[in-house]
Design a protein around this nucleic acid. Sequence first.
DNA 1: GTATGGCCTGATACACTGTATCATACTACA
DNA 2: TGTAGTATGATACAGTGTATCAGGCCATAC
Lengths: 161, 161
Amino acid sequence: MTDAALHIHPTGHDHAACVDEALETAETLCVERGARLTPLRRRVLELVWSSHRPVGAYDILGKLDDGARKPAPPTVYRALDFLIEHGLVHRIESMNAYLGCNHPEQSHTGQFLICRECGNVTEMDDEDVRQTLRRRAAEKGFEVRSQTVELVGLCANCKAG
Amino acid sequence: MTDAALHIHPTGHDHAACVDEALETAETLCVERGARLTPLRRRVLELVWSSHRPVGAYDILGKLDDGARKPAPPTVYRALDFLIEHGLVHRIESMNAYLGCNHPEQSHTGQFLICRECGNVTEMDDEDVRQTLRRRAAEKGFEVRSQTVELVGLCANCKAG
DNA sequence: GTATGGCCTGATACACTGTATCATACTACA
DNA sequence: TGTAGTATGATACAGTGTATCAGGCCATAC
């Protein structure tokens, strides 16, 4: 059982279920692809999923310190690279931080809604947005290969509260 | 006369004109607002405009070294903060770099088209995109306050060439 | 004309984020 | 087993950004 299982997430959901599902999905997906979700990578993924807030690489590094051996930065960055490559984790550019992805089946670059009150980030994978961006850029002669969309504002919970 | 005036920009335009116009616009705008475009800030703006590629803070720092005194990082970051606050410069999050804005009249966050071949970045200030993002987020209960949109791909020139 | 307060810059030190490189260990497969 | 490929450990360093204090400049008030 992980730390996350010990408490309920601020938004009221059972976050342990999020983590479990994410890890299970990752296992399945890596088996399918012949990719190796090693204990280290699994642990890093679990730490990224410790909340719905993006996590810094050095936060992960700190939490990997189990008293015995303290890993070095490349250890974390390599694990993150693997996870990102397989769509299991996204990098939030405007925060230099990392966020678990809950639908990694097809690789993608999502659109992120960053709440400036609670810090939670939700992924909005909107095809309309994607197409609009692609079309508008194309009208300027630009061929889009990858999209970074990060919106800061207020989430539904924080607006209500 | 600046360095930029000594050569023609890759895309074939007279880049010195870009720089001159940007600096002139900045002067006017700061006078209107009662903001102080000091020699240092003006110089930093000029260096940001040295090309249509985003420029790193430490590149600017290096070019500020006139042999006599070498400025320290905070000097550059403070100047950049001022310029960003007044919409004269944008920060490209995915590159940790800074780009001159050619229509700073009304403050805004633009959409950026980053060419992975030539490195040039053009700003696409598309209201349709802005509205689509705002609407789609609102449908998820999210109220957008600021947008970061950075698209990587191929510009018209590099596709043709 | 000087005094005062606010803004701008200088300067030192440090924090945070990420990478290059080489060595070691593990795994899968022949 | 042996071997090639992959994963991790470990050291060092590069790149990016900030906290903090001190000094300088300028406008306005008196």
